[in-house]
Structure formats: C-alpha cells, structure tokens
Amino acid sequence: MESRLADFITNASQVMNSTLAASVVALVETSSEIKENASVTVQHLVNEVRVLKDQLKVPSIYFLARITSDAYIQTTQDVVFQTVEVNEGQCYDPATGKFTASVSGMHLYWLPWETKSGYV
C-alpha cells in the first residue's frame, strides 16, 4: 500500500509539474502576443493623433499695411492701402482693399487713429 501511495504521489507530482510547465509556456507566448498587439495598436493611435493634429492646425492670417498720405475715409468705403508690409496668408487684396479670411472665426482689426479696436 505504501508503495502504491508513493507511486501515486510521484505520478501526480509529475503530471502537476508538466501541466504547470505547459501553462507557463502558454502564458509566456500569450503575453508576448499581447505585447506585440499592444505595440501595433499604440503605433496606430500615434499615427491617428498626428493626422488629427495636422487637421487642427489653424493658419496664421494677418496683414500690416499703411496709408502714406492723409485721406478722409468714409465708414462704408473700402480702404486700399498704398503700402502693404506683411500679408501673411494672402487674404488682403491690395488692388481692391478687400480682406477675405480663409477660415471662419473672430477677426480683430486695429486702427491706430481710433482709441479702441473693433471686431468684424
């Protein structure tokens, strides 16, 4: 009886050890696959964030111009500036005096002869 009990314990230990070893191997393989999949997923997310970031960029649009002579300008009159020093975004047309913003939003103008800024 003792011999059979010893054999049973030995066999049970071998089965448990082999099952445990197989489980460890399977866990290592699975964790390796999870790590690889996570790396691919993270790279896809990074690429998507870059695309979205590029889509959110708002262009710089502004112009700096001046009139070199005294002139009376009526409220509804378009102002054709004689000297355009900066026209970032090319939204001011110096031939017509029209400013057409290429993006929607709030646009600020400043007239140095006035005491305040205005919004259009």
Rank of each mutant, 00 (worst) to 15 (best):
E29G: 07
T19E: 07
S31K: 10
V15G: 00
S32D: 13
L108T: 10
T30Q: 13
A26W: 03
V51M: 08
I34C: 04
V84W: 01
F63Q: 07
S23K: 10
A21I: 05
E48P: 06
Q14F: 02
V84M: 01
V42H: 08
L108Y: 01
L52C: 09
A95W: 02
L5A: 13
S18V: 02
I61G: 11
E33T: 14
A95T: 04
E88N: 08
S13V: 00
Q55Y: 00
S32V: 05
Q55E: 09
T41F: 08
Y72F: 09
S39D: 09
I67W: 11
P94T: 07
N47L: 02
C91N: 10
F81G: 09
H107M: 01
V15H: 02
T96F: 07
E36A: 11
E36H: 07
G105I: 11
L56E: 00
S13P: 00
A6T: 04
T96H: 04
A21G: 05
A26Q: 08
D7V: 00
G89F: 14
G97F: 11
A71Q: 13
S60L: 05
R66S: 12
Y62F: 15
T68Q: 11
L20M: 14
L108G: 04
L5W: 00
F63C: 07
Q90S: 15
T83D: 15
Y109E: 10
T19W: 04
F8Q: 03
S23N: 15
E48K: 04
N87F: 06
D93K: 12
T41V: 12
I61N: 10
V24T: 13
L52R: 15
H44E: 13
V51C: 02
L5I: 15
L27P: 00
S102F: 01
H107G: 01
A95E: 08
G89H: 05
Q43G: 06
F8L: 14
A71M: 10
W110S: 08
Q55M: 04
V103W: 04
V25K: 09
Q14V: 00
V25W: 02
V58W: 06
D93N: 15
H44S: 14
V25A: 11
A6F: 04
Y92H: 04
V80K: 15
M106C: 10
V40T: 12
E36N: 12
V103A: 06
A38V: 13
L108C: 05
S69E: 14
D7P: 00
S31T: 08
Q55D: 10
A22N: 15
M16S: 08
C91D: 08
